[in-house]
Design a protein around this nucleic acid. Sequence first.
DNA 1: TAGATTGTTAATCGATTAACAATC
DNA 2: TAGATTGTTAATCGATTAACAATC
Lengths: 214, 214
Amino acid sequence: MDEKCISKAVIRRLPRYYRYLGELLEDGVERISSNELSTKMRVTASQIRQDLNNFGGFGQQGYGYNVQYLYTEIGKILGLDRTHNMIIIGAGNLGQALANYVQFEKRGFKVVGIFDVNPVLKGISIRGNEILMMDELPQYLKDNDVQIAALTLPKNNAEETANLLVENGIKAIWNFAHLDLEVPEDVIVENVHLSESLMRLSYNLNCYVTEHKK
Amino acid sequence: MDEKCISKAVIRRLPRYYRYLGELLEDGVERISSNELSTKMRVTASQIRQDLNNFGGFGQQGYGYNVQYLYTEIGKILGLDRTHNMIIIGAGNLGQALANYVQFEKRGFKVVGIFDVNPVLKGISIRGNEILMMDELPQYLKDNDVQIAALTLPKNNAEETANLLVENGIKAIWNFAHLDLEVPEDVIVENVHLSESLMRLSYNLNCYVTEHKK
DNA sequence: TAGATTGTTAATCGATTAACAATC
DNA sequence: TAGATTGTTAATCGATTAACAATC
């Protein structure tokens, strides 16, 4: 298969297409043209067609795109047609929030384990998962098929924990810690740096104020 | 002042520079060249110099950049030299996690109020903030100076809540709900779409598998 | 068939990288 | 002064938009 590397900009937009198509589907819309969709999403129709054609021709000339079909296909591209088992490392507020978030499972991301170093948390149950201690992790990963680990712990422990995860076969890390992880190149890291997001917000807030002071 | 619009790509990178400079500062590093920093951050030295020169010449030929000075200046650009009051709308798991996150306050983002519609939560205290009911919000915003509202609630209430916030003078929304908010153009929206992040992770995971199946 | 809309090529735009003169 | 490194211009690269032939 001649699966060329798709640009990151395109991948970044895919989940958003998926979301809009899901909404159209809920509204019972059967077909949509790139032009209609472009209006809704505030992007160009050209971009939509270019993006989709990275993966193949999902549309039909003179008709547009079948919403259900396109939704399903993008879902497949994003890997939402299969189940991914996920563990959460760090059972603090954020870790627990992720563990409690029901919607992920609907998309095929199933939280199967939660780990922490704090013995106070040991055995506490979150949506059917008892919090386990970190020293149980290596054995757990041998016994269970886990693809994704969400890292929701302070940055000082993050690097060594990431190494431990990689050593035990984890292939994808959803990183919420405030640092850039150093991992082998076959391990995927997706960063969610909340504080950086908040700083961008702050930048724009000041920017606006500055501009109007002129 | 001739504050031109800086490209989003540059803004996106600023908080990361800030983070690295903060670490250098902690390590007692006094000066750094764009070349050294580029090695650490795995970007080009050219990009660093271009990015910084959008805001002015912070360096010195033959010397490089003074870490403390550059750190402070980027902080100012990002608006971290002032305090921003923030409220959280939605006291679910994620809202509580944000409210409990101590680091934000260090950067000048102070959680001053938490709101929810669920009467069960009324009066529960989170780091000194009692959860208030949504009907108290308009009066609260009249009595308090709040710039930022974090939206951590289900998407079906998000749009109308955003409208309410905007009507009551909120100028920046940190949106965690899974939808694109429609707000007046002077209102800043910074999105954190966790499920989209997870989908990108999933895409890359499958991608890798696919490529090696060849 | 005629009209609509895609898939795709070509043109444009913007962002990144390279190069180097300015200067500390 | 000589060496180092910035600030900045020019060259390259990639991504977005426009245009249109293909085709349903």
